[in-house]
Simulated scan of single mutants.
Amino acid sequence: MTGPTPPLADRAAPLAGRTALVTGGGSGLGRAITRSLLADGARVVITGRDEATLKETASRLGPHVSHRVCDVSRPDDVGELARSLAGEEISVLVNNAGIAGPVAPLTEITPRDWDEVFDVNVRGVFLMCRAFLPAMTARGAGDIVNVASVSGKRPLARRTPYCASKMAVIGLTATLAAEAGPSGVTVNSLSPGPVSGPRMERNFRLEAERTGSTYAEAEQAFVARSALGRMVTEDEVGEAVSAMLRMRGLCGADIDLSAGMVAR
């Protein structure tokens, strides 16, 4: 079982001495999550499919970051990753790797497109948890954070594979929390709303083309759904992951981080 909550004096670096594994860690949200975990005192291993990007991120973020090339949708890759980290005590797993998938009506989406989204966004979470959870349960402690999305909990036209995959991650999280919690392992999901950056810029361009509007109009129509009238930032997502890891009683939860976008 997990130990007692540390006194306040011990919380300056709440992850000091721990090693975290962040999938999709080379850029975007993964890079922001890694920065936040480093600030909390963790060592971080980042994974992804592009070795050049991983190397660049590891070099930029410093000596407490290492990298491994891994396609989380491939069982052989995940197995090799687990073997290569056998000497590391991975006590935090952040399943962040994901792809946006097609932007199209369901009737125009191919089975191959659908499977690609689910292979990365859902199968990847399953394979990573299956590989790294046993050591956590054997130690009686560990934390898993799965990055889902508010898009799994509200209608989002022309994005059925992505939305369905993120709802699947939320369901996986809730059930795995019930399985792993008695062994002292917490499992939670974080559901960001729209995050400012290249992915949303792509979506706004596509929506503007579809509707005949301008990019600015497509963006404004989207962010107007948010109480704060804006998207969240990558750094806010990274800080949210760290905050969840500090909340020792949090298990089986799904946390919205959407700047007030209505999720249900």
Rank of each mutant, 00 (worst) to 15 (best):
T107Y: 14
R264D: 11
P192Q: 06
S59Y: 07
D119N: 13
G3C: 12
A164T: 10
S226T: 04
G41P: 04
P182D: 00
G24P: 13
R35M: 14
A42H: 07
S242C: 14
G197R: 05
V262K: 15
T173I: 00
V94N: 00
F118D: 01
A82F: 00
R130M: 06
T23S: 02
G238N: 01
T107L: 13
D77Y: 08
A164C: 04
E201I: 14
G249D: 15
A168E: 05
S27T: 15
F126E: 02
W114V: 01
E201G: 07
T214H: 07
A32P: 05
E217C: 03
K55I: 10
G142S: 11
R123P: 06
I90Y: 07
V103C: 06
G260Y: 06
S149Y: 14
S165I: 01
R230L: 07
T5M: 12
Y215P: 01
D40H: 12
F126D: 00
C163P: 07
D40L: 03
P182E: 02
D113T: 03
L81H: 04
T214C: 01
K153E: 03
V147H: 14
T5I: 13
K153W: 03
V232L: 03
P198H: 02
R35V: 08
L156Y: 14
V122P: 10
C70P: 06
E239T: 04
T137V: 14
R159F: 09
A32Y: 11
N203P: 08
A168D: 04
S84E: 15
L15K: 10
T137Q: 11
M231Y: 10
E179Y: 04
G17R: 02
E116K: 10
R154N: 11
A178T: 15
G87N: 04
V122W: 04
E207W: 13
R74P: 00
R202W: 05
A148T: 10
P102Y: 15
G181V: 05
A13M: 15
G62N: 13
T2R: 15
S84A: 15
R246K: 04
G79S: 12
A39T: 14
L61Y: 10
H64M: 15
G171L: 08
L54D: 09
L106V: 12
D50G: 08
A227R: 05
C129D: 09
S27Q: 15
S242M: 11
G152I: 05
I144V: 13
R159T: 01
T160M: 08
D256F: 02
P4D: 10
L156W: 13
L156E: 15
T211V: 04
A82R: 13
N95H: 02
P192D: 09
F204C: 04
L38A: 06
S258E: 12
P4Y: 12
A263Y: 04
L15N: 12
E179F: 02
R264T: 05
G17F: 03
M128P: 07
D10A: 14
T2E: 15
V195C: 04
G238V: 01
M128W: 01
R246D: 09
L245Y: 01
F204V: 05
D76Q: 13
L206Y: 08
L127T: 05
A253W: 13
V72I: 02
S149T: 11
G124E: 03
G25D: 01
I170A: 06
V232F: 02
S73A: 05
A221N: 12
A177D: 11
P6V: 00
S242R: 07
E179A: 09
G101H: 02
G26S: 11
E239Q: 08
C70F: 08
